[in-house]
Nucleic acid binder design. Structure first.
Lengths: 151, 151
DNA sequence: AATATATATTTCGCATGCGAACTATTTTAC
DNA sequence: GTAAAATAGTTCGCATGCGAAATATATATT
């Protein structure tokens, strides 16, 4: 992959930028009609699978920094989508839960996402599998490299 | 790809979020030691291939909105990386060019990017090709869908 | 028990990116 | 040639995400 010249490297970088961008656009389309943002929708999704988690755990699930997670949570509390309650056992941390409004949007999002991913259904199932596999490889490599540098 | 249940959809979305994130991290590592941001570095790259372009053209090359491009350019001018001169022929538009400082950073970035993409060289060359191909497919589909809705 | 250290969260200043509303030119139409 | 429509940029308010510094609470050390 690396013997490529300058232009091939640029192609790879551009491809990633572009795919990220295009996918982000799709997620916005999806979230827009629910009157919420993609990140906030993702928070609802995670919260429905992992209820009662704190901000640090949420940050890990979303691969975000703590400060970013804190900000999202703050805006979502203000928007009445989730609740932030001090934990009894550990008064440093919070327990996040969805409000009724949050639950409702999360439910509606199930159909919504499906509808917006529809155009992608023309992609052969093997390709989808390959994509996920290669993405997995890349993420593994990149996150490994990052952790190494931390030590 | 679509017959999947809710959880598979979530996997796809998560994969994209994660790969985008990991790649963004890599680009930051790359740009950091050049004391510049990834987006600004990309501007320099584009400018070295397409000199004298205006802001709208730059925005298209980077797949950005005009306002975003305008902001980046503004910060780069302030940082002394590029120049923004009114065009003689069309006084609405600008001609962007790199300063000596910009050129120097862009030169140094060639080795830098190569070094940071090094960990990815363990990925088989076929996989890299497959990845670019599938990304291309997806982008085509997504951007097609977006354009349709515009009409 | 007192001190040091670790953990959970917030706040700050920054860059990015969006869409919408606005200004200034240029082109098109009548 | 003047009015209307298109085009190039900017500005605004917003949400996102970062890292670093701060606060509060919990745990470990001595």
């Amino acid at each position: 992959m690396l013997e490529g010249n300058e232009q091939q490297l640029d192609e790879i970088v551009s491809s990633f930028r572009r795919i990220s961008h295009a996918f982000q656009q799709l997620l916005w389309k999806d979230a827009e009609e629910l009157e919420i943002t993609p990140t906030q929708l993702m928070v609802l999704r995670k919260l429905s699978v992992h209820p009662e988690i704190g901000i640090t755990e949420l940050a890990e699930l979303l691969h975000l920094g703590n400060s970013a997670a804190s900000g999202v949570v703050d805006r979502m509390v203000k928007a009445g989508l989730i609740t932030r309650q001090r934990s009894e056992s550990d008064r440093r941390s919070f327990k996040l839960s969805m409000t009724d409004k949050g639950i409702e949007i999360r439910e509606r999002s199930k159909q919504s996402l499906r509808r917006h991913l529809l155009p992608l259904s023309t992609i052969p199932i093997e390709d989808a599998g390959e994509l996920l596999r290669i993405h997995g490889e890349i993420v593994k490599i990149l996150e490994q490299g990052r952790d190494k540098k931390k030590l």
